[in-house]
Amino acid sequence: MKLGLFKPKPRTPVELVLHLRHLLPYAAPNPDVRKSKRTEKICELRKVILEVRTVLYGDERSEPAEEACVKLTQEFFKEDTCHMLIASLPHLDPGTRQDVTHVIANLHRQRVNGRSLASDYLERNTALLAMLLPGCEDSELAISYGAILRECIRHQVAAKYILESDHIKLFFKYIQDPSFDIASDAASTFTELLTRHKSTVAEFLDKNYDWFFLEYNSLLESSNYITRRNAVRLLRAMLLDRSNTPVMVRYVCSLDNMRIFMNLLRDSNKTIQLEAFHVFKLFLANQRKPQEIVKVLIANRSKLIRFFSDFTFEKADENFESDKAEVVKEIATLELEGQPSLKEISC
Rank of each mutant, 00 (worst) to 15 (best):
L3A: 03
L5Q: 08
K7I: 09
K7E: 13
T12E: 00
L20W: 06
L23S: 09
L24E: 07
Y26A: 08
A27C: 04
A27E: 04
R34K: 14
K35P: 05
K35R: 08
K37H: 07
T39F: 11
E40F: 09
I42F: 04
L45Q: 01
K47E: 15
K47R: 14
V52T: 06
T54C: 10
T54K: 12
V55G: 04
L56D: 09
L56S: 12
L56K: 11
E60P: 02
L72H: 05
F76V: 12
F76R: 09
D80C: 07
C82V: 06
H83L: 13
L85S: 08
A87L: 15
A87C: 12
L89N: 13
L89P: 11
H91V: 11
L92H: 07
D93I: 10
D93R: 08
P94R: 11
T96P: 10
R109W: 15
N113D: 06
N113E: 14
S116P: 06
A118H: 06
D120N: 04
D120A: 09
L128S: 05
A130I: 15
A130Q: 15
M131F: 14
L132H: 08
L132D: 11
L133M: 12
L133N: 10
G135P: 05
C136M: 14
D138G: 04
S139L: 11
A142S: 13
A142G: 12
G146E: 08
G146A: 13
A147H: 05
A147F: 07
L149K: 03
L149S: 03
R154S: 02
R154C: 14
E164Q: 08
K169F: 04
K169V: 08
F171D: 01
K173H: 07
Y174W: 10
D177T: 05
A183L: 05
A183Q: 09
S184P: 00
A186I: 08
A187T: 05
F190M: 01
L194V: 00
L194M: 01
R196C: 02
H197G: 01
K198L: 07
A202F: 06
A202W: 04
D206E: 11
F213M: 00
E215M: 00
N217Q: 08
L219G: 05
T227N: 10
N230F: 08
V232Q: 01
V232K: 01
L234C: 00
R242W: 03
R242E: 07
R250M: 03
S254F: 02
S254P: 05
L255D: 02
L255G: 01
L255N: 02
N257Q: 01
R259L: 12
R266G: 02
T271L: 05
I272W: 02
H278S: 15
H278M: 06
V279C: 05
F280Y: 10
K281L: 11
K281Q: 15
K281P: 09
A285S: 15
A285D: 15
P290D: 03
K295V: 07
V296G: 04
L297N: 08
R301W: 07
I305S: 12
S309T: 13
D310A: 13
T312N: 14
K315M: 07
K315V: 01
A316H: 00
A316V: 02
D317E: 10
D323M: 14
K324S: 06
V327R: 08
E330P: 00
Q339C: 00
L342F: 09
E344N: 12
